[in-house]
Simulated assay, not measured.
Amino acid sequence: MTNPYATCLHCRHFRNSPAFLEKTFPGLKVMSSGMASVRADDGLCLKRDIYQAAYYSCEAFEAAAEPPS
């Protein structure tokens, strides 16, 4: 059975906090902020250097040290 938590949202390489995204992508505030509802939980994969949907999964998955609250 596939691990349902083996997604970007639960990966140690994934960052999706609004503050991190606004710092990483200057000008994002102009587009209604990194807190925008259209962004949902999407974020940046630091391993693959791409903006990614939180529900995506790939071979680079490594479980985060802390489970999401």
Rank of each mutant, 00 (worst) to 15 (best):
A65R: 05
Q52T: 15
H10W: 12
I50Q: 15
P18G: 08
F14S: 03
S37G: 03
A36L: 03
S69A: 08
L9A: 12
Y56T: 11
T24N: 10
Y5M: 13
K29C: 06
P26W: 11
S57M: 00
E62T: 11
L21T: 01
S32P: 00
E66P: 00
S33A: 10
C8V: 02
A63C: 02
P18T: 14
A64V: 02
M35N: 09
T2M: 08
C45S: 05
H10S: 10
S37Q: 04
F25I: 14
G27V: 07
R39K: 13
G27Q: 06
I50Y: 12
S17M: 10
A63L: 07
H10E: 07
K47W: 04
A6G: 11
S33E: 06
G43T: 10
V30W: 05
F20P: 00
P4M: 05
Q52G: 01
E22W: 01
A60D: 11
S33Q: 07
T7L: 05
D49V: 06
P68I: 08
M31E: 09
P26I: 07
M35Q: 12
P67E: 08
A36D: 08
L28S: 06
A53W: 11
P4Q: 04
D42K: 09
L46G: 13
R12Q: 15
A65H: 02
M35H: 06
P68S: 02
L44M: 14
P18H: 09
P67Y: 02
R15C: 10
G43W: 06
A19Q: 12
A19K: 12
A53D: 14
C58G: 15
V30T: 11
P4V: 02
V38G: 12
L44D: 01
N3C: 01
E59Y: 00
S17Y: 09
R15Y: 10
G34E: 08
M1R: 14
E22Y: 01
T2H: 10
A54S: 15
I50L: 15
S69V: 07
S32F: 10
F20D: 05
P26A: 12
Y55H: 14
P68F: 01
A65Y: 00
E62H: 03
D42W: 09
Y55D: 12
L21C: 06
Y5I: 12
T7M: 01
A60C: 07
T2L: 10
V38D: 08
F25A: 12
S33V: 00
K47R: 15
R15E: 13
E62N: 01
N16P: 02
V30D: 11
T2F: 08
K29Q: 09
A53S: 13
E59W: 00
C58V: 05
P18R: 13
